[in-house]
Amino acid sequence: MSKPSLEQLLELAPKAIAPERDLWPQIEQRLTAASKPRPMRQLLAAGVLVVVGALSYTLWQPQQRPNPELLAMLAELQQQHQQQIAQLEQKSQWVQWQPASLTTPINQGVSELQQASDKIYHALQQDPQNQQLWQLWLWSQKRQIELLTQGQQLPVPANNPTQGIRI
């Protein structure tokens, strides 16, 4: 019997080949570690965009708006932000499994940002039409939320977290 030609073998080549072992468990592990865009983050990003848009519109109105309205908006935003922070911090306490070496820098960063944010807020109360202060304030809030979210996604330590990784 003659050997099959290359063309014949190409036609017979299977479209699907089963792997020798189950690859799913490792894929699943990587999926949980992979950073998939979360609806929460998307909502936050959308929220920040809406606020920036609304503020730009308000600040660039041809006629000056009375300060009380801006001050009221400022207070409301501050309140919403504090609520969001409280929720995230509460969530962090539920998943308090990370070693202190990982969480301490994040907590310190959040606390520094909070202090900065408070100072900017007080400055804004004095000068609510200062656009740069608004941007700085919103940025500090955004960073605070990002840091808290990062803190919740710290990796699970190995059996012995003090032991280094051997390569």
């Binding site: 299977p14 479209k15 699907a16 080949i17 089963a18 792997p19 690859l23 799913w24 699943e28 999926l31």
Partner: peptide
């Protein structure tokens, strides 16, 4: 996603 994996993994593996 695991269901999708099981349906298509043999083609991807090939």
């Amino acid at each position: 996603f695991e269901c999708l994996y099981h349906r298509h993994h043999q083609q991807v593996y090939a």
